[in-house]
Amino acid sequence: MSDDGAADDGTAPTDRDHAEWLDALADGDGFAIVCPDGHGSLPPRRVCPDCGSPDLSREPLDETGTVETYSVVHVPSPRFADDAPYATAVADFGPTRLTGIVRGGDASDDPPSVGIGDAVTVDVGERETDGERLVVFRPVTSAGDD
């Protein structure tokens, strides 16, 4: 689901760097831009926003992130009209944090319960309102899930 002509469908060209980053995330190859001092950030970057270093490399995100904060949004912007209520979270993925929407495995309309410290994986999903791609977190359920 990566090289399927996303750049030709009329949605990608305005933010090419972002589209490529989402492609990588969808392929399980999510990455951060990291400087020699270990500051992580998200693309596009020419210099590290923390220290100004131009010596940047792509480093993989951790496979599992940790939720640092979240909110269940009841009053959405028009672009999320059909998605609300939904849970937005900020999760730490090692070199950088990501912001995304938490979705469960089922097709329920209710946002899954989420808490600070919860483990999540990251994927790319679609906005229910208009099909635009967005960052999605999925709770990691331990074996013997209660």
Partner: peptide, 10 residues
């Protein structure tokens, strides 16, 4: 816009 608004942050 890229990393917050598109992730549903109001």
């Amino acid at each position: 816009d890229l990393f917050e608004v598109r992730a549903g942050v109001t």
